[in-house]
Amino acid sequence: MSTRYFEARDLTVSYDKVAAIRDVSIGFDEGQVVALIGANGAGKSTTLRAITGLKRPGRGEIWFEGERIDQIAPAKLVERGIAMVPEGRRVFPHMSVRDNLLMGAHTREDKAGVASDLERILTRFPRLRERLRQNAGTLSGGEQEMLVIGRALMTKPRLLLLDEPSLGLAPLVVRDIARLILEINRDEGVSVILVEQNSRMALRISQYAYVLETGRIGLEGASAELIDNAHVRALYLGG
């Protein structure tokens, strides 16, 4: 049993018998933005893949809204309200922006709801409305990031998992994306797990953060405090 809104307990995930993460536990309450930071290869993405079922944890439990979800197929998690935006954006490149967004609504039967959500997302991302008929592969990196976030929102999630949304984007665009994540969290009441190598951005927009070090949680705490932590400053924020 778990009493928290989301809880992953003692997750261990191995690739070819080598543990990528070991005894990772994270938990948070509804409506929070939680950050997972750490160096390349520390196990951030593996943790997310375990949560979405793309990689089954060898050990551990995952609970969401009072139910255990670690044995559920990834495609079924969408209907449970969990959406993941994978690393590297992964738009459907030869499909229009509109079709990309509609793919997010694949499991939904409420036509009117889908139409109004599409409209709301296009209002939030005016750039996507301008490029509605264009193939997603022709968008800029920042626009593609907006598209995959919009696509995930079309699934009507209560929990959004973002894997390195700032990767490869210009600093100004990163700022836009950070603001968008905060707005989505605030306006739609969506809880967010944010995996980031851009620790500064992640700590600024999250309430709580976990620092992964070689597959284990090395440090955790309120994000505002971690920003001032000497160890975090030295290792992840460039002094």
Binding site: T52, R90, F92, M95, M103, H106
Partner: peptide, 24 residues
């Protein structure tokens, strides 16, 4: 069609399609 769109999506990115809740 919805199924046709899912077929095109699957052809372009299997993992992303799975994450949309599609029964691939």
């Amino acid at each position: 069609s919805k199924t046709g769109r899912a077929m095109r999506a699957l052809a372009q990115d299997r993992t992303a399609t799975l994450l949309m809740g599609v029964d691939t």
